[in-house]
Computed example of a mutant assay.
Amino acid sequence: MKNLVLVAAMGLASVNAYAVDIVGLYNTGASFSAGAQDTNYALSSTTTTVGSNGYVTANGSFPLAGNWLANTATSSWLTPTASQGETLDPSVDGLYTWTTTFDLTGYDAASASFNAQFAADNSAIVYLNGNQIGTSSGFSSWSTFSATAGNFVAGVNTLSFVVTNQAQDFGNPTGLRVEFLTSNVATVPEADTYALMLAGFGLMGLVARRKNTA
């Protein structure tokens, strides 16, 4: 009987959730060419007229020529307009909100976590589902942010990067860059998997009773 209990426990463990990468977390500019709009990040502003998405930048010209961190194959800067060096917010600080979402339906939100880094011109605050999880104060180095179980919700989760561009009347672009370093979440076994396991355990119990009465 003890062996049967052990087998049953092992069977339950076999259908326990297993960790996978979180689907829907995209680095800025990933899989988009320079000049294209990154549709993974929605853009809005209360101070400047902008489109619905930002534009992927290119190395070699301002502000990526010795100012902002250089783009890599992993991620690129996004700017509010197609002209990446355009002077914005000449007299009043600009406020830009970049938003991306990911869906944890079918996953155990309580098990989710990620580690990431970002940079912004001039500064930024990142929120997950309305809760602040990190800040960035520059465009020449990375700032880290992360989230653990208590920050996530079942279903759609929302990451928002609120960027402040300090007013200046010349040479004043703004942008955002994000890279996800690690992420994981546990899958939730489907109902039919549980049903099969329960049926198996019932059969094991029947066998055990027969052995005990033999």
Score class of each variant (00 low, 15 high):
A119C: 04
L159E: 04
Q166E: 12
G134V: 13
G200M: 03
V7M: 07
T182Y: 09
L12T: 14
S76I: 04
F118C: 02
W68Q: 08
M10H: 08
T74V: 15
S143N: 15
F201N: 06
V7C: 10
I22G: 07
L12C: 14
M204L: 15
S31N: 15
G175V: 05
I125N: 11
T101W: 06
A191D: 15
A199E: 02
T135W: 08
Q84S: 10
T74W: 05
V185T: 05
T57M: 08
A42R: 06
A191Q: 10
G134L: 12
Y96G: 02
F180Q: 03
G175Y: 04
L25G: 09
Q132V: 07
I133E: 07
N53E: 08
S83W: 00
F161V: 02
A154T: 07
N40D: 06
A149K: 12
T87E: 03
F201V: 12
F170N: 12
N157V: 01
A167R: 06
L78M: 09
W142C: 10
G134Y: 09
T74P: 01
G130C: 04
V162K: 09
A82L: 05
A70I: 10
A167V: 06
D38T: 11
S75E: 00
G175K: 00
F102Q: 00
V162F: 03
N16L: 13
V23K: 15
V162P: 06
A34H: 02
E86G: 06
V178W: 02
Q166T: 15
L206T: 14
N67W: 12
L203K: 11
S52K: 05
D93W: 05
N157A: 06
Y41S: 01
A82Y: 11
D38A: 09
N40I: 04
N59D: 14
D89V: 01
A8F: 10
S141Q: 14
T49V: 11
N131H: 05
D103W: 00
W98H: 08
Q117A: 09
A214Y: 07
V153H: 11
T213Y: 12
V92I: 12
A191F: 13
M197E: 13
G85E: 00
D121F: 01
S160N: 14
L104M: 04
G94W: 01
S183E: 01
L206C: 15
G171F: 08
F161M: 14
R209K: 14
T174I: 04
G138N: 08
F114R: 02
T164P: 00
F32G: 03
V23R: 13
S91D: 14
